[in-house]
């Protein structure tokens, strides 16, 4: 432990199972400012394990902000208050000595709590399965340069495709809407020539699944964009809405 460690009080959400009643548990920690918030939890868990106590359940994997596994609400903000980072990229130097932190799971009707800070985000997979793909089989693709794609279109598509599927948009939204998540995928394919054949079926299928799973509707407060670790733009929602309307007037409902 370095001398420049900071001392913090943590209030961490503990909940044994989906059915159990949860509550905050208080911990005092001393942590290096260079550590990430997840490294702080690692250290705390190591201490709990040593004492024979049950460690705090939380998920993480790449710790580089790209896999979308981690996701904590820190002081009311999904992935903390800083813009455009995932929880694993939140470093303790952003907190002051003596500060109190509240650490909670991503809460939403469609994200059931599994244990402590772990939630069930399988709804996201179901939405993708409903239409988040281009239908073709391995081996049947034409040469990659056969269809030129303007640089700015490819770039816009990538802006949307950067979504890491973490669920912060849902946790940030007062209606627990998944519009930004769905729009990111719909938009990526709507922009690209490869996505055109199924463009309108796709938007209908994905939105229908989203509604079915109990995600709420968009309230246009843009909290999703503000909390998104990749800064996915709400313009994608506008693009999706436009496609959805067009699909309703030009195509039969799927």
């Amino acid at each position: 432990m370095g001398n420049n460690n900071i001392n913090l009080t943590l209030n961490i959400w503990r909940q044994e199972s989906a059915e159990a009643k949860g509550d905050f548990e208080k911990f005092k920690v001393s942590v290096s400012p260079d550590a990430s918030i997840l490294e702080m939890l690692d250290e705390l868990n190591n201490k709990l394990e040593k004492e024979g106590k049950i460690p705090i359940a939380f998920e993480s994997d790449c710790r580089e902000g790209i896999c979308g596994t981690c996701g904590l609400v820190v002081n009311g903000h999904p992935h903390g208050a800083l813009p455009k980072i995932a929880t694993c990229q939140l470093h303790m130097r952003n907190f002051k000595d003596g500060e109190t932190l509240y650490i909670e799971p991503f809460r939403a009707t469609a994200f059931k709590i599994i244990k402590d800070l772990i939630v069930d985000r399988s709804g996201f997979d179901e939405i993708q399965q409903a239409g988040g793909y281009i239908s073709f089989n391995t081996g049947s693709a034409p040469d990659a340069n056969a269809v030129p794609i303007p640089k700015e279109i490819a770039s816009l598509a990538l802006d949307a495709a950067e979504c890491i599927g973490c669920g912060a948009c849902v946790a940030a939204c007062k209606n627990s809407s998944a519009m930004l998540f769905v729009a990111a995928k719909v938009s990526q394919f709507a922009l690209l020539p490869q996505g055109q054949p199924e463009r309108y079926e796709r938007v209908q299928a994905m939105i229908a699944k989203m509604d079915e799973l109990g995600f709420g509707s968009c309230s246009n407060t843009y909290a999703c964009e503000a909390e998104c670790p990749k800064g996915i733009s709400v313009k994608n929602i506008a693009r999706m809405n436009r496609d959805y309307i067009v699909s309703k007037v030009t195509k039969e409902t799927v």
Binding site: Y133, T138, A141, A144, P148, S155, A157, A161, Q188, Q194
Partner: peptide, 11 residues
Amino acid sequence: QCVAQGVPFAR
């Protein structure tokens, strides 16, 4: 294959 899947490679 990846381009056909809609992978937005740099252009």
